[in-house]
């Protein structure tokens, strides 16, 4: 049986997420899902550059920022899925890793709506910037909800356990990031003394 098409995937994750995440849970749609993620990341990166050009300057402009967002998005997806998969296994759940990657990639689709919020930010002044911030926060919550759904459908588990897997993974990611930071600082510090 063929996996869902590109249009079906993008529209499906927004209009009937549970069905779509269940459909991609077998992992056969990983390729198209990753393409969707790359497009979403590019749009998100470009939107950020439009709303805050000084941030874009830090990495050399909007195009590098969009590319960095794509690369960073892919890396974060791998880390998030890897840790989420490990945590789920520890909690006794079983699922398809490729399916999890597909689901978590598609969970980012609502971020494309950052573009209209960025437009409000640059056209309506302070009120628009406030709307932009509120919209971005709402979209982040939407992405989190879809990520939890992706975990639930991939591991065929309860919503409560999916929430537990999501937040345990998040804590582990933060812990790992701090550990890497401490390691880097620990390696560099002696060089200054």
């Amino acid at each position: 049986m063929m996996g869902p098409g590109f249009a079906e995937m993008v529209v499906g994750i927004l209009t009937r997420p549970r069905d779509m995440l269940r459909q991609v849970g077998d992992g056969r749609s990983l390729g198209p899902a990753l393409i969707v993620l790359a497009m979403v990341a590019a749009i998100t990166g470009w939107s950020s550059a439009v709303a805050a050009p000084h941030n874009a300057d830090l990495v050399g402009g909007p195009a590098p920022l969009a590319l960095a967002t794509i690369a960073g998005g892919g890396f974060l997806l791998l880390v998030q899925a890897g840790i989420g998969y490990g945590v789920a296994r520890l909690l006794g759940s079983r699922g398809n890793f490729r399916g999890l990657l597909s689901g978590l990639a598609l969970a980012n689709v609502p971020s494309v709506f950052q573009a209209p919020f960025a437009l409000l930010g640059v056209t309506l002044g302070p009120a628009g910037m406030a709307l932009n911030a509120l919209g971005t926060a709402a979209l982040s919550i939407w992405v989190i909800v879809l990520s939890v759904l992706a975990l639930r459908e991939t591991f065929v588990t309860s919503t409560g356990r999916a929430v537990l897997i999501y937040f345990l993974s998040l804590i582990l990611v933060l812990f790992l990031a701090l550990a890497v930071l401490a390691l880097v600082v620990g390696l560099l510090l002696p060089a200054f003394f």
Partner: peptide
Amino acid sequence: LVIGSLILSAVFARDWRALVR
């Protein structure tokens, strides 16, 4: 909606050369 927003944002934000850098 998305592409239109991006283009309009760029137009309203500043000139294109400034947007690029």
